[in-house]
Design a binder for these strands. Structure first.
Lengths: 111, 111
DNA sequence: TACCTACATATAGAGAGCCTACATGTAGGC
DNA sequence: GCCTACATGTAGGCTCTCTATATGTAGGTA
């Protein structure tokens, strides 16, 4: 997967995996990998800063927990984040429609 | 359209509109707009440098022409560009499959 | 003890490409 | 003279993603 392709879609991915339940960063990375059938291997250096950014702009909230002696920062969607996710989903549809309509092979010059 | 979303897909778009016939930059911009149903308004500051980059790496070739007193640089796909376009198309499918499978709403924790 | 893997978070700096803004010029209508 | 459409181009900025690195716990094993 070309790294640049993810640009601008990271937020949608993170928001989406957090939709049904709060998760911590490490679990989010695993969820992305599982849900994409192994196609998405997002490095920690991408995910952690992105989560902090989403928290800073109010789409996520977080709290620390200790499980099995290890510290976790668990993120959950805010109301703002939930609305944002809706927007991201329709933006995704528009995006794929637009790019898809250009990429579709056209052998005739009929427009 | 969020500018970042285009990241890494510009090459595919340019290669694709040049598939059936050579075009100059300005015509490429119009073609992108028309084919996408108005969704894609790519600024000249994006297209011209991108075309030069694609020429530099061998996916396009160009030649100057004068039409109606105006100078045009017309770009055409090279063999390498044609192969690249094939690759971009399958990469696009993999990309949308991966993101799509994550974005799809999941209400149960069974997945 | 030493070492390894899995789990878990975080930051600094690099790299790349898309965008804004600007510069330049022709053709044609009013 | 002024405007719009046509046509190409560059400089600099911005932002995000990635690589590389640092830190630490828990548990297995030799």
């Amino acid at each position: 997967m070309n790294p640049d392709a993810l640009r601008g879609h990271m937020d949608a991915l993170l928001l989406s995996v957090l939709e049904r339940e709060p998760l911590h960063g490490y679990a989010i990375i695993e969820a992305l990998q599982q849900r994409s059938g192994g196609a998405l291997s997002v490095p920690t250096g991408t995910v952690y800063p992105a989560l902090r950014r989403l928290e800073r702009i109010g789409h996520l909230s977080s709290e620390w927990a200790t499980v099995g002696g290890r510290k976790r920062r668990t993120y959950r969607l805010t109301e703002s984040g939930r609305r944002q996710l809706e927007g991201e989903r329709s933006a995704w549809r528009e995006f794929t429609d637009a790019i898809g309509s250009v990429l579709r092979p056209q052998t005739r010059a009929s427009g």
